[in-house]
Design a protein around this nucleic acid. Structure first.
Length: 272
DNA sequence: CATAGCACCTGAGGGC
DNA sequence: TGCCCTCAGGTGCTAT
């Protein structure tokens, strides 16, 4: 489900509610996520400590604790984090409850269990973040960087944009959308793009991600922010899930192909 | 080394 | 109604 704009939306919605709070108790109802939840480390490093900040790296949400530890959360395809003020009934697939010192709790739900919840000891690196590429909304994400990183690469430009070692946070929705808005065909070999084309790609990725954050993310089905509110970027989708629909720019039908096993949508007239 | 393919799960929706 | 098929916002392991 969540790509960078959705994770950032969740971060912004939860941050004011969580910073300064102590995690009093942690309930683990299902530890079999993508990687098994380490309950012992949760109790040792997270429970009983205060949250000093909520940050984000790519699609990972990081709870920074006042003992120097961190809680890494990835939502996979179907993960959700929700803030509950009281004793509301548990929804299905609620795998963890992090109970706060004000009686509220944050619940992690994830029907498909592709996400992960990983406590990281104080002053320890978190392996999963090693090797990640630059943030697309940072100064490191430039046309020159992509041009260098992908020179000689034969994979498609869309697949490259979705590779977290190249750039983090761009998933299937926003890779499709960004390539439409810069007029580049998704199946073009990445190594064949000119510097000028990479310039258009970077500007397009940045603009699409920023706009999606402004709209509170994309709610196709079930995405909600930490307060249970949907996003509105789905109304802005130009190509994603728009097979056969008229292109917003030229009116010809949007095409769907499969690249690396993922649905890929584009306008064969407007994207070259 | 780079890249393609598949596995990991549950649920929704369509066709019959 | 119900069964079976396909598809879904992600990533990481394996094989080539």
């Amino acid at each position: 489900m969540p790509e960078l704009p959705e994770v950032e939306t969740i971060r912004r919605s939860l941050q004011p509610l969580l910073v300064g709070r102590e995690v009093k108790t942690i309930l683990v109802r299902e530890r079999r996520l993508r990687r098994p939840v380490n309950v012992r480390h949760l109790r040792k490093w997270i429970q009983g400590y205060r949250i000093t900040a909520l940050s984000r790296r790519g699609k990972y949400l990081l709870w920074e604790m006042d003992n120097g530890s961190r809680l890494l959360i990835h939502l996979g395809m179907s993960g959700r984090l929700g803030y509950f003020a009281g004793q509301e009934e548990l929804e299905p697939h609620t795998h963890l409850c992090l109970c706060l010192d004000n009686g509220a709790e944050v619940r992690y739900r994830d029907p498909r269990r592709y996400g992960c919840v990983q406590p990281v000891a104080p002053n320890e690196g978190c392996g999963v973040l090693d090797g990640l590429g630059p943030e697309p909304l940072s100064v490191d994400f430039t046309a020159d960087y992509l041009h260098d990183a992908l020179c000689g690469s034969k994979r498609s430009v869309k697949t490259a944009l979705m590779d977290s070692r190249i750039v983090v946070g761009v998933g299937n929705i926003y890779a499709n959308e960004a390539l439409f808005h810069c007029g580049i065909a998704p199946q073009r070999p990445a190594g064949a793009l000119s510097r000028e084309e990479w310039k258009r790609v970077t500007e397009s990725v940045i603009r699409v991600l920023q706009q999606a954050i402004r709209k509170g993310g994309t709610t196709l089905n079930d995405f909600r922010n930490g307060l249970g509110e949907p996003g509105f970027f789905q109304a802005d989708l130009a190509v994603y899930d728009q097979e056969e629909q008229p292109c917003r720019r030229c009116g010809r039908p949007i095409c769907r192909v499969v690249l690396q096993g993922r649905s890929t949508f584009y306008c064969p007239v407007c994207q070259k």
